[in-house]
Design a protein around this nucleic acid. Sequence first.
DNA 1: AATGAATGAGCGTTCATTCAT
DNA 2: CATGAATGAACGCTCATTCAT
Lengths: 202, 202, 202, 202
Amino acid sequence: MGGTMDGMKQQRRGNTRQRIQDVALELFAEQGYEKTSLREIAERLDVTKAALYYHFKTKEEILVSLFEDLTRPIRELIDWGSRQPPTLETKQELVRRYSEALAGAAPLYRFMQENQATVRELRIGETFKERMQGLRDIMIDPKADLVDQVRYVSAIFTLHAGMFLLQDLDGDAEDKRKAVLEVAADLVTRAHEGSRRAKESS
Amino acid sequence: MGGTMDGMKQQRRGNTRQRIQDVALELFAEQGYEKTSLREIAERLDVTKAALYYHFKTKEEILVSLFEDLTRPIRELIDWGSRQPPTLETKQELVRRYSEALAGAAPLYRFMQENQATVRELRIGETFKERMQGLRDIMIDPKADLVDQVRYVSAIFTLHAGMFLLQDLDGDAEDKRKAVLEVAADLVTRAHEGSRRAKESS
Amino acid sequence: MGGTMDGMKQQRRGNTRQRIQDVALELFAEQGYEKTSLREIAERLDVTKAALYYHFKTKEEILVSLFEDLTRPIRELIDWGSRQPPTLETKQELVRRYSEALAGAAPLYRFMQENQATVRELRIGETFKERMQGLRDIMIDPKADLVDQVRYVSAIFTLHAGMFLLQDLDGDAEDKRKAVLEVAADLVTRAHEGSRRAKESS
Amino acid sequence: MGGTMDGMKQQRRGNTRQRIQDVALELFAEQGYEKTSLREIAERLDVTKAALYYHFKTKEEILVSLFEDLTRPIRELIDWGSRQPPTLETKQELVRRYSEALAGAAPLYRFMQENQATVRELRIGETFKERMQGLRDIMIDPKADLVDQVRYVSAIFTLHAGMFLLQDLDGDAEDKRKAVLEVAADLVTRAHEGSRRAKESS
DNA sequence: AATGAATGAGCGTTCATTCAT
DNA sequence: CATGAATGAACGCTCATTCAT
């Protein structure tokens, strides 16, 4: 019937799946996975709970779909990293690109960080863990000094933390990301030098 | 020890409150706060749910009591820190003592880290946040370079992360704590030097 | 693209109604009416649930159609029987032909037997009941001894039961049907003789 | 008797479990297991659904408890039978006592008969099947003629059917039970004789 | 110091059904 | 001839909490 569409009830049909994902991510991040009920998601979208089940088989599947859609760049980055030689340059570039990739999936990663206990029991828990271990394997030299190993871990973790721990510091978001990246890169460099020093002095 | 004692069913009576806390912490840490039901806690203790309500007014109160009991040293430490001059030495000592204090409340802190989304909505959420801000205020020089501010935050966060992010690295727990501490202390030192450099070059 | 039929996805179009009936009967018999959902039927046929509604107005209608299609011979048999004189010969022939008719609608009858509670509430419940009463009216002489009345009922019931109660006995299916028929026929004969005896001795 | 008790809301406390069983059996028998919802049971008892869960872990458990409570005599009877020599006398007595035992659990057995498809998927399905097989093993002589084997099965089945197939015949319930028993006993006798005949003629 | 019995609210999920396209 | 999208009603179940005993 054309015309200009009546109001907004029926706005954009066919994108309901996407709208569910958007609202779900927002609520999951805000209140946590368990405390967010399907009723709540449905109400915000002005559909019934049953409608959600037309698009997703379970509540968990909504989260899985978000994870898969939003973390693809990160998965690809780790794949790339695992095929590079473990030089300092590789690690530096990995850290730089990881920082960017994280920024693109910030709300989801914040959610994952804040709901670890819950996520661990879900299907994506295992996937996430494997991914982190992939990162670790690329970064960490198992022959390095324990302190330097911690530096690597700290670098990764600093990147993650950067996303939400700096929220209450003021300043431009992109500036903060750069600052976080610099600290992480610095940690990586020092960890790498430490290894060299260890080798030389042996 | 004397008496007749039938088996072990009512081992140590009168300490039920304490036993509830122990079991609750274990389960909260293992499965998260929401996924741990009072039924489960009661069953493990072989008492009824109603018994829990004799000792604690609500589920949340169990957590609050754990938090208060286990984080007292940390609260005192921060109180102490806030009365010291903001020198490098103060910060170094704070970091050292914080690392020790954390080790004493590790399971609870691990729980807090992994259940942030949940904790945020609870009474202790606010308290915890204030405490972290207290730490931040002691450590961070607001006039410092953004990168150095990140270094301070990263130091604190590295200490937290140390507790559970290194679980799958092998090595003695105390060795790992020391390594983590060294990295954190190093970050603090560099942050402090950075500030001095900044001042000199201005 | 175009022309030659790709595989088997749309094998025989136009007979969807029939395929729905086939799958439905299979699932109804296997899992019961309530536990079989339209989703399940649709999935097996690789069509959508809505497609089922093109062919049948309701779930119940699918069952009704099966009943009507598969039990026509039985209905006709009973009609025939009710027009015959109530002699032993009539009853014997009725039993013989009923046994054959049942074999032709075995899965449906098995379903009816195993889902009586459900069927009773459905439209076919009444029909089925009437039919059974028709059978009874033909067989049973209301003036006969109670024991002989039971024999008639037992004969009918033995025929029904034969279909699935002998499933775990081994032997050829047709042999078993014959054996069941013999027992039923025997019961009918004895019931009839009993009635004669009763009359003679009065 | 004695005391007047205020209304009926709180009548007999402590017997709620029993009242749940009573109402559940009534509704299960009337409408079937699936069509009976816990809401319905709860409403009839004027308690909440959650109260049912205080007494039974699941809906299925309510049925299991009914089965176990009501069919104990039958279980014991079969145990007894399996320890006797397989003479005609044993079988006759078994049939007689089985008929009595069935009468005591009539509503439940009627339910089982009318909800076979459902029951088969439940925990009691297996148990019930085993029990029927036990009965069969006692009764049936595997070396007997197929027709006689059918007679044994028919005898058992006639007993079951007797409970509800004769509902619309009029007459005293106990008279009907006796008549059913006589037919079943007769079938057993003939089956036994058949076997003897077979042996003699060989 | 603890239990037995129950509640009210809510949850995730499934179902038969509808209807515009 | 069929699908995509959605609904309304219900379901079995769990939870934190209460309270008389």
